[in-house]
């Protein structure tokens, strides 16, 4: 086992050959790297990653992938109150109720969902991490004050909050982002604070103090890095719900009012009175929302499993 080990120096060659020579010289496996390796072996993670990747690529390269310009209503004359043209050679998925190409609308919709989902989650994460971090780092009265504030935020139903924000700011993308973010702030704050408190009780934090480390160093370079795991997982899962919420708020008419911007949630609204005659108008955007949310959820759950210390050997 070690250089000083009497057994090793005396160990016969035949035994050493069977054992290998103890500790390898290679680089150790850090927790992040170990988590990544577990992730890359998990089929759910791979499927989730593929879905998310596909979604992101579609969103970014929408102009290249889409066969037409979005929301131009070029074929409005083909749409009748009782019928929307289905798939045809020029339009693989047919048209939408406004006479635009349905495939083009779906592809540009990905863009909208991604931007709003990512930006709102980022705002929520930032705000929540700030509040939770302050509460977790200082503790005591600061903690009590911040957490009561968070409790108040939590007690307002998120949809109501979103509706009021949208009502104040008017129906535009920024309103949706802030509305969604506002609902996420308390979730992230509580999570990071709880995680930090749990880490602060650990022996290694006590050990850091006993070594004479400054409080700031202990919090920033020991407590915080070890508390981030659950927050990262939550952020991934929140992306899934954010995408659904974007759709939900648009469905309620609180999203962008500019019809030139394709958005999955609004596509649902426009399709609902044609559910009987042209179900694909509702099914396809619905499927896009579901699959994307599923992708983020799968990835997030796999990430949770990979980061969870209990699944570590």
């Amino acid at each position: 086992m070690t250089a000083l080990d009497p057994a090793q120096s005396a160990r016969p060659a035949s035994l050493s050959a069977l054992m290998g020579d103890g500790m390898s010289d290679e680089q150790g496996t850090s927790l992040w790297r170990g988590a990544f390796e577990r992730l890359s072996r998990n089929p759910a993670a791979i499927i989730g990653t593929l879905i998310v990747l596909a979604f992101v690529l579609v969103a970014i390269f929408a102009p290249l992938l889409a066969p037409y310009e979005p929301a131009k209503s070029q074929w409005i004359d083909q749409v009748t109150p009782s019928d929307v043209p289905g798939p045809s050679p020029g339009h693989p998925l047919g048209l939408d109720p406004f006479g635009s190409d349905l495939l083009t609308q779906l592809i540009y919709g990905a863009r909208q969902s991604l931007i709003i989902g990512v930006v709102s989650t980022a705002i929520g994460l930032l705000g929540g991490a700030l509040l939770g971090g302050v509460a977790g780092a200082f503790g005591g009265r600061v903690d009590t004050f911040v957490m009561r504030l968070v409790d108040i935020m939590l007690s307002i139903p998120s949809l109501l909050l979103a509706v009021s924000v949208a009502a104040v700011m008017g129906p535009r993308p920024g309103a949706i982002m802030i509305a969604i973010a506002a609902a996420q702030v308390p979730v992230f704050a509580r999570l990071l604070r709880g995680s930090m408190l749990a880490q602060r009780g650990q022996d290694y934090v006590l050990a850091s103090f006993s070594l004479g480390l400054r409080r700031r160093t202990v919090v920033m370079s020991h407590v915080v890095p070890n508390s981030l795991g659950p927050v990262i997982v939550q952020a991934t899962l929140t992306l899934a719900t954010a995408i659904i919420e974007v759709a939900a708020l648009s469905y309620l008419g609180l999203g962008a009012s500019d019809p030139a911007i394709a958005e999955w949630g609004r596509m649902l609204v426009k399709a609902q009175d044609r559910l009987q005659t042209d179900p694909q108008l509702m099914l396809l955007p619905g499927l896009c929302i579901a699959v994307t949310a599923l992708g983020f959820t799968l990835f997030g759950e796999a990430l949770r499993e990979a980061l969870d210390p209990k699944s570590r050997r």
Binding site: M1, D5, A7, Q8, R11, P12, L15, M19
Partner: peptide, 25 residues
């Protein structure tokens, strides 16, 4: 010496041999 982890499969040799002061070929 060593730890309970330092073992050899019983099918190949005595599993305790890696930690045993009396082990030989």
């Amino acid at each position: 010496p060593g730890t309970p982890r330092d073992t050899i499969a019983w099918s190949k040799a005595c599993a305790f041999a890696p930690r045993c002061l009396h082990a030989d070929d």
